[in-house]
Design a protein around this nucleic acid. Structure first.
Lengths: 119, 119
DNA sequence: GCAAAGAACAACAAAAAGGTTGCCTTTTTC
DNA sequence: GAAAAAGGCAACCTTTTTGTTGTTCTTTGC
């Protein structure tokens, strides 16, 4: 077999890179931390305590929304944002693959060194 | 106790955001994939098969190096880059915290709903 | 010792990211 | 029904990122 799973490594990277990028910002990590606590929150609520303007926070939320780490629903005059766990679960799995590859590489190296010592 | 660990949530984000950002690029994810396979590789070797120039690849490697996902060592006329697993292990732990928070939020919601049904 | 391979360094350009302000719309609330 | 609260939209600016080309330096191989 030449493929590990159903999709190519390149396709996986195309899918996952934007998710990592979305998490690659302090402000957005803070938003994720607030939202993964459970309660959906409005943009104004999420802006409280930040030095940034509401508009800046909105932009960050849209970045998270585009990669589906959060979703929003209009409720009356406010937009409520809610956490979505799937993308983060998926990149955890991706990182597990990386770790696994590394561990196997170490194991191969170790057994190679042991064969060397025996010869 | 008001703190979970030794460092504040803000400090963690300051530390982890750059690591996520470093992974937030297809080219760099491809480099990580090659390097976590075990063999250290020169910049020229890592450039092979890419549409980018060696200089562009070098810049990407420096980004990964800055957050310590890889390190380089000059060996003769070539720079060999090698994978380092620690930062990725740490962000996996960070993502576990996020998932855990979310799971607890769901559990609270569930027990709340059940109490509602009993009353 | 000279040519080629590998790479560092620097200048530059284009594009994307991050943030602001201003203005307009919709929904509450009194 | 007017004021305030919550937001969407768009223009604009600045900084960072991403990539290129060009030049120089060191190591290697013959």
């Amino acid at each position: 077999m030449s493929r590990k799973g159903r999709s190519s490594a390149t396709a996986k990277r195309q899918a996952f890179a934007p998710v990592f990028a979305a998490l690659g910002d302090e402000t957005r990590l803070a938003l994720v931390a607030k939202l993964c606590g459970g309660q959906p929150r409005s943009i104004s609520a999420l802006t409280e305590g930040s030095k940034l303007t509401r508009q800046a926070i909105t932009k960050h939320l849209r970045v998270l929304e585009k990669v589906e780490i959060v979703h929003s629903a209009r409720s009356g005059r406010e937009s409520r944002f809610e956490f979505d766990p799937e993308p983060i679960e998926e990149i955890k799995k991706y990182l597990d693959l990386v770790s696994e590859q590394w561990d196997q590489a170490l194991a191969r190296l170790k057994s190679f060194v042991e064969v060397e010592r025996l010869e």
